[in-house]
C-alpha cells in the first residue's frame, strides 16, 4: 500500500504540491490526472523517492521512504519499476542490453536465462526483431515499449507510469494500455499512472485522482468520480475549453 501524507513541494517559492494526501491500496492501479504542468510528474517522482518533499511524506507498506538509507533504500527500490515519459533508455546500449541491464546488475542469473527473459519481454512488446537497435534508431512508440519491457523485466511489485501513451498514435497507445492492463492483472502490482488519456484508462484502473492547483480535488473509483459532478474534473474529462479552468 502506498500512502502519500500531506506532501508539500515548492520550486523557487512557487508551490506545486500543497499538502497532497492520497492512498493507493495493495494491487490497485491509480490514474493520476490533471492539466499539463500541474505537478503530476512531480508527485510521481516523490512517490518513487526521486525527489524529496518540503514537508509531508510517502509511506510504502508503512515504511517512510524518505527515512530509508543504504541497503534498506536499495531493497525498497528493488520493488519498483518506473516507465519514464521519454523512456530513459541508456543511449549507449542496444534494446537487448537495456532490458538485460537490471537483470545483469541485480541478479546472478546466467546469461542464457537472462536472454530468455529479455526475449520474452521483447516478444510481448512486439520488439523481438529490434533487439539489436540503439535507442536513437527507434521511433517514440518503440522506445516506450522497450522502456516498458525494461521496467517490467524484474517483476516489480510497485509500478510507476509517467504518461505511458503520450506522443504515440492511438493504436500503439491503446496497445500499451492493454499490455499494462494485462501485466497488472497477471503480476498484481500496485501502480500509479500519470496520464491524460482519461477516457481510455477508466476501464483499466481501480482509482482515479485529479490534481488541481496543488491539491487532489477528486478521488475515487472511475464510477464514483464521474458522479461527483466536480466542474473542473468534468471540464477536463470532456476536454472542453469552456469551463472553470481557462487556459488562455
Amino acid at each position: 500500500m502506498i500512502e502519500i501524507l500531506g506532501l508539500h513541494k515548492s520550486f523557487n517559492g512557487n508551490p506545486v504540491l500543497k499538502g497532497v494526501t492520497l492512498t493507493v491500496r495493495e494491487g490497485e492501479l491509480l490514474a493520476l490526472i490533471g492539466r499539463s504542468g500541474i505537478g503530476k510528474s512531480v508527485l510521481l517522482r516523490h512517490i518513487a523517492g526521486l525527489m524529496r518533499p518540503d514537508a509531508g511524506t510517502v509511506k510504502i507498506d508503512g515504511t517512510d521512504i524518505f527515512k530509508l538509507r543504504g541497503r534498506d533504500l536499495v531493497e525498497m527500490r528493488k520493488r519498483f519499476g518506473f516507465l519514464f515519459q521519454g523512456g530513459a533508455l541508456f543511449d549507449s546500449l542496444t534494446v537487448y542490453d537495456n532490458v538485460a541491464f537490471p537483470l545483469r546488475e541485480r541478479t546472478s542469473l546466467p546469461e542464457a536465462q537472462i536472454k530468455d527473459r529479455v526475449f520474452n519481454e521483447l516478444e510481448h512488446m512486439g520488439m523481438k526483431n529490434d533487439w539489436n537497435k540503439y535507442p536513437a534508431e527507434l521511433s517514440g512508440g518503440m522506445r516506450k515499449r522497450a522502456a516498458l519491457a525494461r521496467a517490467l523485466v524484474m517483476g516489480p511489485s510497485i509500478m510507476f507510469f509517467d504518461e505511458p501513451t503520450t506522443g504515440l498514435d492511438p493504436i500503439i497507445g491503446q496497445n500499451i494500455l492493454d499490455y499494462i492492463h494485462r501485466c497488472h492483472r497477471e503480476l498484481e502490482f500496485t501502480a500509479v499512472m500519470v496520464t491524460h488519456e482519461v477516457q481510455k484508462v477508466f476501464g483499466i484502473v481501480q482509482q482515479v485522482a485529479m490534481i488541481h492547483q496543488g491539491e487532489i480535488i477528486v478521488c475515487g473509483s472511475p464510477e464514483a468520480v464521474r458522479q461527483q459532478n466536480d466542474p473542473v474534473f468534468d471540464q477536463f474529462v470532456r476536454g472542453d475549453s469552456k469551463g472553470p479552468v481557462q487556459y488562455i
Binding site: R45, A48, G49, L50, L73, V74, E75, R77, K78, F80, G81, F82, F84, Q85, G86, A88, L89, F90, D91, F101, P102, E105, R106, M154, F160
Partner: peptide, 11 residues
C-alpha cells in the same frame, strides 16, 4: 533525459 533517475529507480 532521466537516465540517471533510471539508475536510481533500478536501485
Amino acid at each position: 533525459t532521466e537516465q540517471i533517475d533510471a539508475y536510481e529507480v533500478m536501485a
